[in-house]
């Protein structure tokens, strides 16, 4: 069952990027990025990384929603082009989807789908406390804890990078 979920989500994931690369206007590019990002979070979630999936969904997609809001606000077209508004975009989209399904068919006929099953069985996202205790900890919160404890300088670098990122974005868009 779980493999089927992953299989389905993977198809949707690629489909999102096909839609993105055949986007008719930037607004829909943002939209498909949000959709694919959400599906990516669900992929992580379905493998057991519940904390990571939730965090990425809330923070990354939260930011993406802001960007999406800005692009929508900045797009001055009142009637943006959609996928169905011109035959060429429609054809590109269809071609991409057909390519995806052909590739999928080729994989399935060569028994390559098993890769997904292998991925799914790569191991639980659980680490054990030690032999005497019976504590369980999921791997992703453990990693976060590790970053905060003995990787504090990494946090400093990451914080500075985040600050510089927003600073530079403001610096180059403020104009003269």
């Amino acid at each position: 069952m779980a493999v089927n979920v992953m299989y389905f989500l993977s198809i949707l994931f690629v489909m999102g990027f096909v839609c993105l690369s055949a986007k008719p206007s930037p607004v829909y590019g943002g939209l498909t990025l949000v959709v694919s990002g959400g599906i990516g979070c669900m992929l992580i979630l379905s493998q057991g990384g519940s904390f990571l999936g939730l965090m990425v969904f809330l923070i990354y997609l939260g930011g993406m929603m802001v960007v999406f809001g800005y692009t929508t606000a900045l797009a001055t077209e009142r009637y943006p082009e959609t996928w169905a508004s011109s035959m060429i975009i429609w054809g590109t989209l269809l071609l991409g989807l057909i390519m995806e399904f052909l590739l999928l068919y080729w994989w399935a006929s060569n028994d390559q789908i098993e890769i997904l099953v292998d991925c799914y069985n790569m191991g639980e996202w659980i680490i054990y406390d030690d032999e005497s205790a019976v504590g369980f900890l999921s791997e992703d919160p453990a990693g976060v804890a590790a970053i905060y404890s003995y990787n504090c300088w990494l946090m400093f670098v990451a914080g500075w990078s985040m600050f510089v990122g927003i600073f530079i974005a403001i610096e180059i868009t403020r104009g003269n």
Binding site: L154, V157, A158, W160, S161, V164, G165, I168, E171, I172
Partner: peptide, 16 residues
């Protein structure tokens, strides 16, 4: 990971 972070930082700072 830190190597990658360093590359990204200098690339971002180069833009302005």
């Amino acid at each position: 990971l830190l190597m990658w972070i360093g590359l990204e930082m200098s690339m971002l700072a180069m833009i302005p």
